[in-house]
Write a protein that binds this DNA or RNA. Structure first.
Lengths: 342, 342
DNA sequence: AGGCGTTCTGTAAACGTTTACAACGGCGCC
DNA sequence: GGCGCCGTTGTAAACGTTTACAGAACGCCT
């Protein structure tokens, strides 16, 4: 008990060679008698295979990595909830990396692929630098990127059409008669920030609304800063009648601010978020939000990666998830819960 | 580029032995000239050390495990947010295990300690079986359990005084004049379920209130089932004026049901949760909740484990986090946001 | 100049597996 | 009875590190 048992220990106890032990443990054909001896010795000694030795020899770690900006964001959480069971079922462990959206950190994770402690990686970079692309090209293990990536990048890619998503929301608000539609965005140097900013301007144009830069306020992607950004916007444009937020967390901050300012939602200001997180139905009023299919994207990423692990040489693939508008009471007063007709 | 470079490759390129390469890479004293040659060869070849080989030799994986029932629960999330950066700073990666509160699964994770792919484990078992205790005793690597564990178990333990927490909540509701205080609990065969059930009865007794078993309803620890359980309770006891929920998720479900039933919160029914998750301030009305110090518990667990990793022989320790009642509008109408005096 | 100590380097073994290859025994067949 | 074949087993090498140990180079002192 004091020494950790290895296949050598088992071999001695069972009176066979280590090769036989290994064969039995891996289910290769063996004489019943040998198998019996080995199995009983293994059980008796409480043998557990050493994963480092196994990895060293087999060149597989049975681990996959998931790198995101911040595990506190419910979007990533929704993805993990899909990804985790898929890999667990396939015999992989999940190694988590929370990078704080720090590029250097993300590059470190990519370098980690070279250490071979993970067999593959799902990554969600908020910013995409040349260094990322270089590392993608040099990577020794398959990578799936969630979020848009150049066409020729040698990685699988799961994306969502956030352009279409923003359009859905803007059209919805416009359809409700709102004309002063503010936009609270995250940093413009992030992939989603940039995409949503462009999409917002486009959507307004398509509806024949003027694009007023003063209607946009940039902050970050969290609730507290979302509240501050919304407050600034509200100060500057007191007569806005709708607020589109680049994600749900920002929208929650905006709801806090509007409530404190005594604006009724949705009567005075309609509010819409993006991501359609679980939390949207918890907020008051329940939040209209553009679903970007977080769960689907997580599942798609996991499946792409699993497939690529088995089928190493296949060409990179792109999966696109369609956005979908989920209307709730924060834009549509007829949906306020507890006030429905019976 | 086609062959993964190893220290052998580097040694050839630099014209030194593999021992020298290893020494340079590990910062052991070397002649400046050698160091220069090795470093430049390593950089040129894009060398990355192989973690399996390193682990095999050093007997450390630089990974730690975190096992919880379900990563979707915001309590565990709050813990991870504390734990992740602590271990990252100390050079460890975090391996996630979501066990669905399945005992067999948890035992598997414990067995994993023997595979040595993690150097230590933080675990939150919802149920604690004899098998758990056996595995704790046999474990080759340090374990920290969050949640109560027998005094003599050979593991570090971070607990919270949920008894005191329940008492705080019941006293608060009683102080508001509520006398028909319902209790929506999770399964009684779980550690927290059992503790909270006993504490609820005790707290009532201490206040001289009768204990009416009909005021208790058992479900699970999630929102949907929380809603169903609350609905059943409400059907059975239409005149209850307060509802204590064994965690916040249950409370959110209860809020849904009460709203649909046309009961005003807090005027008709005061609602309190436990865990004081982030989401409590998102709900409507904002949820009064007993903070069980999730973040503190996470941090404490991480620190205990790190300490134990450095100081292997020290005796098991117990850290207790005190609960704290956070009063919000779901029990106290004077706190409804947007209605404060200026 | 010889001996000694210091500093650095190389050789080789070890960590615990998997697996190519050879050896072995038993069996059927001619 | 010898041959070949098959199924099973053992030996040994390999995976990429770290590290104990011995040896080499060098400067310094007497």
């Amino acid at each position: 008990m004091t020494e950790e048992p290895t296949i050598t220990t088992i071999a001695q106890h069972a009176g066979v060679s280590i090769a036989s032990v290994s064969r039995v443990l891996n289910g290769l054909p063996t004489k019943a008698e040998t198998e019996r001896k080995v199995m009983s010795a293994a059980r008796e000694l409480g043998y557990v295979p050493n994963s480092a030795a196994r990895s060293l020899k087999s060149r597989r770690s049975n681990q996959i990595g998931f790198a995101m900006a911040d595990i506190g964001n419910p979007v990533y959480l929704a993805m993990i909830r899909e990804i985790q069971p898929i890999f667990k079922a396939a015999g992989y462990r999940l190694v988590l990396h929370s990078t704080d959206a720090d590029t250097a950190d993300e590059i470190d994770v990519l370098r980690g692929l070279g250490e071979r402690y993970i067999d593959g990686l799902i990554m969600i970079p908020l910013r995409l630098t040349g260094e990322h692309l270089t590392m993608f090209a040099a990577a020794r293990a398959p990578i799936v990127v969630i979020g848009s990536v150049p066409e020729d990048a040698p990685v699988d890619n799961v994306r969502t059409d956030s352009r279409a998503g923003v359009r859905l929301a803007v059209e919805h608000l416009h359809g409700l008669g709102r004309r002063r539609i503010g936009f609270v965005n995250g940093p413009l140097d992030t992939v989603p920030g940039a995409a949503r900013s462009a999409a917002y301007a486009e959507a307004l144009a398509a509806l024949g609304l003027p694009y007023d830069p003063g209607l946009t306020q940039v902050g970050d992607f969290y609730r507290a800063e979302g509240a501050r950004a919304a407050a600034r916007l509200l100060d500057r444009v007191p007569d806005l009648d709708a607020l589109l937020c680049a994600n749900d967390l920002i929208a929650f901050g905006a709801l806090d601010v509007l409530r404190r300012a005594g604006r009724r939602v949705p009567q005075d200001v309609a509010v819409a978020g993006m991501d359609d997180t679980d939390l949207a139905t918890l907020a008051w009023p329940p939040l209209t939000s553009v679903s970007l299919g977080s769960a689907e994207r997580g599942r798609a990423a996991a499946e792409l990666l699993l497939d690529k692990l088995e089928n190493t040489r296949r060409a990179p693939r792109v999966v696109t998830v369609e956005p979908r508008l989920v209307v709730r009471a924060s834009t549509d007063p007829s949906r306020i819960p507890g006030e429905e007709a019976p």
